[in-house]
Simulated scan of single mutants.
Amino acid sequence: MGFSAEWLALRDPADRAARDAVLARRAARAAGPAPLIVDLGAGTGATWRALSPLLPPGARWRFVDNDPALLSIAAAAAGEGAETVIADLADLEALPLAGATLVTASALLDLVSADWVAGLVARLGVPFYAALSYDGRMDWTPKDPRDAAITAAFNRHQTGDKGLGPALGPDAADHAARAFEAAGFTVTLADSPWLLGPEMAALQRDLCDGIAAAAAETGLGDAADWGRARRETAALSRCMIGHLDILALPPVPPPEIAHVQH
């Protein structure tokens, strides 16, 4: 599992526009008055860019990723309020969650396994906010008769192992919601679709290349032709790529009952 800084920069405007604003504000409030946010798979700091304007002064960040080059970009942007930790996300027990008041992730849950989610839920007693998990929906304008087959093949490919076990793929946010609810968390899901028009033709082209390559790996014969056709018409096309955001709030412990001695 890994992404280039160039791809992350290209998708950043679409991510910012897609992220559900109400849920982001709720996540920022849930972090508390003196927050320490641990951002898993932090990359170049997408979650920091989204949440930092919503947080109180002095908020601290701990960026966790396996790519030191991406972490250096995130740290340079965030400044003194951030620390970086190079870590293998697959090793849940080693993730540096101590002291966190909020744990976050962006575009990560669809890459992890059911066991990974279960392990994370078992470790968390603080709010969890994960944005932009792909949910299996694609819609293109103009249409292509191959669109449905491409989407189905891509969605199958998304459930392969991305380095963190068999990936949840399009079911990620719903699965995580069920897992957190079973542990007593209060969970809210919100739509956060990419809405890409001709002004984002460059992102559309790279996106279509990736979708076509993944679909081809499943054995779909005309995936490459679909990708070329979509690339050629990107400056005239619109597409919706479905994502979901999730906020899971831990159960509130009951107040202690004062015992009065007589």
Rank of each mutant, 00 (worst) to 15 (best):
D174V: 12
A149D: 13
A148I: 05
G163H: 02
D115E: 15
P145V: 06
R146F: 02
D174K: 10
G169P: 11
A153S: 12
T159A: 11
M138Y: 15
L164C: 09
S133H: 04
P142W: 10
P170F: 10
H157F: 15
P170A: 14
T159Y: 04
R156A: 14
L168P: 11
D174H: 13
W140A: 03
L168N: 07
D115Y: 01
G169W: 07
V117G: 04
D161A: 01
S113L: 08
A149W: 03
D174S: 12
T159H: 08
L168E: 03
R123Q: 13
V126M: 11
P127Y: 09
V117K: 03
G169H: 05
L108P: 07
R146K: 07
L108K: 04
A122R: 14
P142R: 11
A130T: 04
A122H: 11
V121A: 12
P166F: 04
A148W: 02
K143I: 05
G163M: 00
F154K: 03
V121C: 10
L168C: 10
A153N: 08
A149C: 04
L120N: 01
P170I: 04
N155C: 12
D135M: 06
S113W: 03
G119M: 06
W116V: 00
S133I: 02
V126P: 13
D135Q: 08
S133Q: 03
T141G: 01
A114H: 13
P142E: 09
R123A: 11
S133P: 12
D147E: 14
L108A: 09
L164N: 08
R137G: 01
S133C: 02
Q158L: 12
G136A: 09
M138G: 09
G169E: 11
L132P: 11
M138L: 15
I150M: 09
D144E: 13
N155M: 06
R137W: 03
Q158T: 08
G165K: 02
L168S: 09
Y129L: 09
D144H: 14
G119V: 07
P127M: 10
H157L: 05
V117P: 12
G163R: 00
N155T: 10
P127F: 08
D115F: 00
L164M: 14
Y129M: 01
V117L: 12
Y129E: 01
P127D: 09
L124Y: 10
A114K: 11
V117D: 02
V121F: 06
T151W: 00
G169R: 02
S113Q: 05
A148E: 15
P127G: 07
D161K: 02
T159C: 13
L120S: 05
R156E: 15
R156D: 14
K162W: 08
A152M: 10
L108T: 01
P142K: 06
M138N: 13
G125W: 00
R156Y: 03
W116R: 02
D115W: 05
P145E: 13
A152G: 09
M138F: 15
A149N: 03
A167E: 06
A167Y: 07
L164A: 14
V117H: 06
D135A: 06
A153V: 08
